[in-house]
Amino acid sequence: MTGMTVIVKTVTRWTAALIFLYGAYVVAYGHLGPGGGFAGGVILACAYILITLAYGGEHALRVLPRAVASRLDSFGALAFLALALVGMVGGGLFFTNWLQQKWAGKAFHVFNGGIIPLANVAIAIKVCMSLFLVFFILSSVRMFGKDEQIDFRSKEVD
């Protein structure tokens, strides 16, 4: 599959990075305003899905190999759990906001939400990778194939 027309490809080239940037903004700003890990992660995944649609599966896999995506998927969840466990070791309770004591409520400081921005980043990685994988795998299964190998060439994405 070679992807879609040159118009779509060009527009995608311009917009994909912007969408990604916007997703990153939503994640990073999530502890202060609307947004957060899940919403931002979905926007990040949309950037990858746009690339997959416009350029085809092969190109998308060059940008983000499947093995990397599924590793990052587990990594995001583990990072979130690790944050909680560190709180347990440091503060005595699961999910203790162990950074909050230092910088709580200080304006213009990165960690003024305690561990919440970090948790948002972990969730964003997890959500982005999961959504991308769900979309990619579902869109690339051959419907009449005997073997269950994933082969994106035979499936047209329109």
């Binding site: 795998i137 579902l138 299964v141 419907m143 009449f144 194939g145």
Partner: peptide, 10 residues
């Protein structure tokens, strides 16, 4: 559900 439905179709 969709994944299982696709497998069922296969």
């Amino acid at each position: 559900a969709i994944a299982i439905a696709m497998r069922l179709y296969q």
